[in-house]
C-alpha cells in the first residue's frame, strides 16, 4: 500500500469543511502529498429551466460568489502549505466529487461531517455518508 500522494478535499466553506481542510493540510505535510480543494455548485434543475426560458436567474453571480470563496480558501491554504490547488465544479455533489477523484487521480478523500444527529440526520443523510458508501478510494471524515 503506497503512501497517499494526492488528497482531495471537498468543501462547502462551512465549519466542518474548514476543519477537514486543516486536517488535510496537516496530513499532506506529513506525507508530502498534493492537495486539491473541490467545491461543487449545486443549482436545482428548476433554476436552469427558468434560465433557459430567459428569466433572469443569477447563475453567473452564484458561480462568481463560489469562485471568490474558493479563491479565498485556496489563498489561505497556500499560506500553510505549497502544494495546493482548487477546482470549481457544477452538478450533484456526490457524482462530481467522485468524478474529480478519477480525473485528478486522487488516492484519498478528506471531508468534514456536519455532526447532525437523530431525526435530522435520518431524513437528510449526508454527502459524506454517500461518499463513504461509494468512493473507490479511502475516505477520511473529520468531525465538526
Amino acid at each position: 500500500m503506497p503512501t497517499f500522494k494526492h488528497i482531495l478535499v471537498p468543501t462547502d466553506f462551512e465549519e466542518a469543511s474548514e476543519h477537514a481542510l486543516e486536517a488535510a493540510l496537516d496530513l499532506a505535510q506529513d506525507l508530502d502529498a498534493e492537495v486539491t480543494i473541490v467545491h461543487v455548485i449545486q443549482a436545482p434543475p428548476i433554476y436552469y429551466s427558468a434560465y433557459a426560458q430567459g428569466l433572469a436567474w443569477p447563475v453567473e453571480e452564484l458561480d462568481g460568489a463560489a469562485r471568490r470563496a474558493l479563491d479565498d480558501a485556496l489563498a489561505a491554504a497556500k499560506k500553510r502549505y505549497g502544494k495546493v490547488d482548487a477546482v470549481l465544479l457544477n452538478g450533484a455533489p456526490r457524482v462530481q466529487i467522485l468524478e474529480a477523484v478519477v480525473d485528478r487521480k486522487a488516492d484519498v478523500i478528506v471531508m468534514g461531517t456536519h455532526g447532525r444527529r437523530g431525526i435530522v440526520r435520518a431524513v437528510l443523510g449526508s454527502v459524506a455518508e454517500s461518499i463513504v458508501r461509494t468512493s473507490p478510494v479511502p475516505v477520511l471524515t473529520v468531525g465538526a
Binding site: S126, A128, V132, P138, V142, G143
Partner: peptide, 17 residues
C-alpha cells in the same frame, strides 16, 4: 458498519476500500 461509525464516532474516521 462504516457508515454508522462515520455518523457516530466523535473522532475522525478513515474508511478504506
Amino acid at each position: 458498519t462504516a457508515a454508522r461509525v462515520v455518523n457516530h464516532a466523535e473522532c475522525s474516521v478513515m474508511v478504506v476500500r
